[in-house]
Amino acid sequence: MTSWLDALIQGVLLGGLYALFAAGLSLMFGVMRLVNLAHGDLIVLAAFVILFLAAKLGLDPFVAVLVALPIVFVAGFALQYVLLNRTLGRDLLPPLLVTFGLSIIIENGLLQLFSADSQRLRSGAIETASIPLGGGIAIGVVPLLTLLSAIAVIVLLNLIFYRTPIGRAFRATSDDLEVAQLMGIDHKRIFAIAMGLGFVVTTIAALYLGLRANFDPTIGPARLLYAFEAVIIGGLGSFWGTLAGGIVLGLAQTIGARIDPEWQILAGHLAFLVVLVIKPRGLFPRAQD
């Protein structure tokens, strides 16, 4: 019994990590209908950026990530403005091809620079700290921080999207690109800001990726898959849905692993398929799509 309760708790906490993976993807798709196949590799790249800054500047990863955020915002802005904006249009293929290419470039670039060795973000005692809940169940501080960060990111994204002028511009541009231009909205700039924001969220996800487990340059595509599944389970266009999607995926994997350790990943994919069969548009689809 405790073992199942423990699985539920750990599953929800793992879901926080997947929600962080997925939030950036959800944002990029939500604003510019971009299916970013490089998303997983961007998470890994951001983890290496944090690792590099932490090592070079002698910082704790939690501080290094704060240094990284403005840098990655500018990088995301530039990537969208210079490259990805050119690929967006009526044809769906160019952005897929370009982000797929980007994924390959990032992975191989990281292999060249950092080798295939496993890396880890080191933050001292907090990594192994846990809070006992009694009955033999304990929750790790880092997994708890992951979930809380995921919730904070989702709340912030909702505030930006639904309470600020730039958020109105994001939604308007996503609704009707042509009419958005009639409002004086420079959609290329709006897309670039959205990508910068997406990179910021991605880098927060990378912090917890690197604190919770080893990473190396090749693990990106699997993270993309989890992020993608979480977004689809939650329903396109809703950040709270993305959080729910991450948690469903985390729960399925953790419970699957309790049944048989080999079933962890498979159970996640099965949950994804089951949700798609029952609710093809995800758990919380946006009303008017």
């Binding site: 109105r168 308007a172 609704d175 042509e178 009419v179 409002m183 909205i185 420079d186």
Partner: peptide, 20 residues
């Protein structure tokens, strides 16, 4: 008309002066 469906009435009006 081409209103923005995911914006409320007031948000549709407010977006009108976004760029200027």
């Amino acid at each position: 008309r081409r209103l923005f469906p995911s914006l409320t009435v007031e948000e549709n009006l407010l977006i009108g002066d976004y760029g200027c």
